[in-house]
Design a protein around this nucleic acid. Structure first.
Lengths: 123, 123
DNA sequence: TAATGAACACTCTGTTCATCC
DNA sequence: GGATGAACAGAGTGTTCATTA
């Protein structure tokens, strides 16, 4: 049952990394909880035909916790109900910065790849 | 054991479509066989960190046959050996055009999505 | 050894289910 | 019904194996 590593062929960036990037930026500005972030993303990307799922947002958040980039607290949600929600804040600003820098390099790369495809195939 | 359909959330274009696009364009210009195309793609995309696998090229070619866009012939390869290789030509120019148009729309969309990410997260 | 193709296996992520307010 | 999380399952594609010239 040994699990062999798979190499990446380096095509385009993964959804997970893309969402993690946006989550970090959003949380730098204010506190959010999971479903808020989902709504925000759907609103942002909807016009571009991209509608992420709630589970992928949670997976991204859990990744960021494991990475040590975010930390989580529980607060009572505003309003008549006293439901607790999980809100996130930046835990390690340096790590966040490093992650964003890495993703930027990949976004640039992908961007070039797409531009190249448009040039090469639609002369 | 009913197979449920999965919806796409519409993130980025798939490698398969990307390769099919390039294959069509290459074959519009001259005849190619599978491994030639692979070498060409590796040379083209290598500087961008993308190195497709041979099996994905073949899958793309088989798709294009099924789509009715390409047709396949066998020829004796040049050189001292008389090995047969499978060379492809455009079968239906209209279908090819339609496919390329569709992919262009998706590439444009993806391109905008990436540009947006660069703007939104790296002010 | 080059070329083609298919089987196998892993990753990513969409879908569904379970809890708890 | 909103929020969170985990289990389950399918699509996409990387890896390996088989075949033939």
């Amino acid at each position: 049952m040994s699990t062999r590593k798979r190499e990446s062929t380096g095509f385009l960036i993964k959804q997970r990394a893309f969402l993690k990037l946006y989550i970090i930026t959003n949380i730098e500005n204010r506190r959010w909880y999971g479903l808020q972030l989902l709504d925000e993303m759907k609103k942002e990307f909807g016009p571009f035909g991209f509608e992420p799922q709630h589970s992928e947002i949670y997976r991204a958040l859990h990744d960021l916790l494991e990475d040590g980039i975010l930390t989580r607290g529980k607060i009572k949600k505003n309003g008549s109900k006293y439901q607790e929600v999980a809100v996130y804040t930046i835990k390690d600003q340096e790590k966040a910065k490093t992650y964003k820098k890495m993703v930027k390099a990949d976004l640039d790369r992908c961007s070039h790849l797409l531009r190249k495809a448009l040039e090469d195939n639609y002369a």
